[in-house]
C-alpha cells in the first residue's frame, strides 16, 4: 500500500509538472497581450520596459520559466494581469467559497435524490415508477447542462419569478445553480443505484434476511442498500469531472462569483497568470480527487485490491 501510494504521488507530481510547463510555454506563445496595446504603444520605450519589468516579461524565456517554477513551489502564482494588485492565489482563494458551496450542495442533493429514486425504481421494477426514473436518468445524462440551466432560468426565474436570476446575494441565489449542477449527478446515481439494487435483490442473502423475519425497512437499509452502494465509487470519477465542467458554464449563466466563472472570464481577457493558476488548480484538484477515489476502493470494499498493492 505504501509503495503504491509513493508511486502514485510521484506520478501526480510528474503530471502536475508537465501541466505547469505546458501551460507556461503555451501562454508565452499566445497571440494577444493582456495589456491594452494602444495605450502601451503611446508609452515611451523606457516606460514600456519598466512595465514589462514589473511583470518579469523582460527576462529571457528560460529565466522566466525557472522563476515561474520556483514561485510555484512556494505557492505564489504571481499577480493577476487583469485584476490589478491581486495575486492569483488570493484571487482563487477569494472565489472558491461559492464554487465549493455549489459543488457540495449539488453532490448532497444529487446523491440523496439519486439514491432514493434508484431504490424506488428497483423495488417497483417495470412499473411507471421505474420507467419515469429511467426517463429522468436518460434526460439527465443527455440534456446539456447549459441548456437545462438556461431553461431553468427562463421558466423558474423569469416566467414564474420564484428565484433570483443571475445575482449572488442571498442563499436563495444558490438554489437554481445547485439544481442545474446536480441534474447529472442525480441521473448517474439513480441509474447506477437501480441497476445495482436489482442485482442485490436477487442475492441469496436477501432471501435469508427476509426469511429470518426482518422488517422491510431493515432488509432494505441494512442489507440491500449497503451492498448496492459499494460500487458507487466507480462512477465518482465521472461525477467529479462533470461537476468541474458544469461549474464553468453554470457559474457563468447564474452569475456566481466562483472559480468556474473566473476561469472563463480570465480566458476571455487573456489574463495569463490567472489562467495558468487556475489550470494548475483544476488539474491538482482533479488528480488528487482521483487518488482519493482509488484509495477508497481498498478501504470500502476489501474485496477490491488496488493493482500494484499486492506486490
Amino acid at each position: 500500500m505504501k509503495k503504491y501510494l509513493f508511486f502514485r504521488v510521484i506520478n501526480i507530481l510528474i503530471t502536475l509538472y508537465i501541466i505547469a510547463t505546458a501551460t507556461f510555454f503555451l501562454m508565452k506563445q499566445l497571440p494577444g497581450s493582456p495589456f491594452d496595446e494602444e495605450r502601451l504603444s503611446s508609452l515611451s520605450e523606457e516606460q514600456r520596459m519598466e512595465f514589462y519589468a514589473k511583470y518579469g516579461l523582460d527576462k529571457p524565456l528560460h529565466e522566466q520559466y525557472i522563476l515561474y517554477l520556483t514561485n510555484l513551489v512556494r505557492g505564489e502564482m504571481g499577480d493577476s494581469f487583469y485584476f490589478k494588485g491581486q495575486d492569483v492565489s488570493g484571487l482563487i482563494a477569494s472565489r472558491i467559497g461559492p464554487s465549493a458551496l455549489l459543488g457540495f450542495q449539488a453532490v448532497l442533493l444529487g446523491f440523496t435524490v439519486g439514491i432514493v429514486l434508484g431504490i424506488i425504481a428497483a423495488f417497483k421494477h417495470n412499473t411507471m415508477w421505474d420507467f419515469s426514473t429511467m426517463l429522468v436518468a436518460v434526460l439527465g445524462v443527455s440534456v446539456p447542462n447549459f441548456v437545462f440551466a438556461a431553461l431553468l432560468q427562463y421558466y423558474v426565474g423569469l416566467k414564474m419569478g420564484l428565484l433570483p436570476v443571475a445575482f449572488w446575494e442571498s442563499y436563495s441565489s444558490s438554489i437554481m445553480p445547485t439544481l442545474a449542477l446536480s441534474l447529472i449527478v442525480i441521473a448517474l446515481i439513480a441509474r447506477f443505484t437501480r441497476n445495482e439494487m436489482l442485482e442485490v435483490l436477487q442475492q441469496d442473502y436477501m432471501l435469508t434476511a427476509r426469511a429470518k423475519g426482518l422488517s422491510q425497512f431493515k432488509v432494505i437499509y441494512k442489507h440491500a442498500i449497503r451492498n448496492a452502494l459499494i460500487p458507487v465509487i466507480t462512477i465518482l470519477g465521472p461525477i467529479v469531472v462533470s461537476l468541474l465542467t458544469g461549474s464553468l458554464v453554470i457559474e457563468n449563466i447564474f452569475g456566481v462569483p466562483g472559480i468556474g466563472s473566473l476561469f472563463v472570464d480570465s480566458i476571455k481577457v487573456n489574463d495569463y497568470t490567472t489562467i495558468m493558476g487556475l489550470t494548475l488548480f483544476y488539474s491538482a484538484f482533479f488528480v488528487l480527487t482521483m487518488l482519493v477515489i482509488d484509495l477508497m476502493y481498498g478501504v470500502i470494499d476489501p474485496r477490491i485490491r488496488i493493482s500494484g498493492a499486492k506486490e
Binding site: N11, I12, T15, I18, I19, A22, T23, L26, M27, Q29, L30, V241, L244, T245, L248, I267, I275, T279, Y282, S283, F286, V287, M290
Partner: peptide, 15 residues
Amino acid sequence: VGIPNLIIIILLIML
C-alpha cells in the same frame, strides 16, 4: 488521463 480533458482543450484553443 491525469490531465482533465477540458484543460487540454482550453489550452489548445487559446494557442
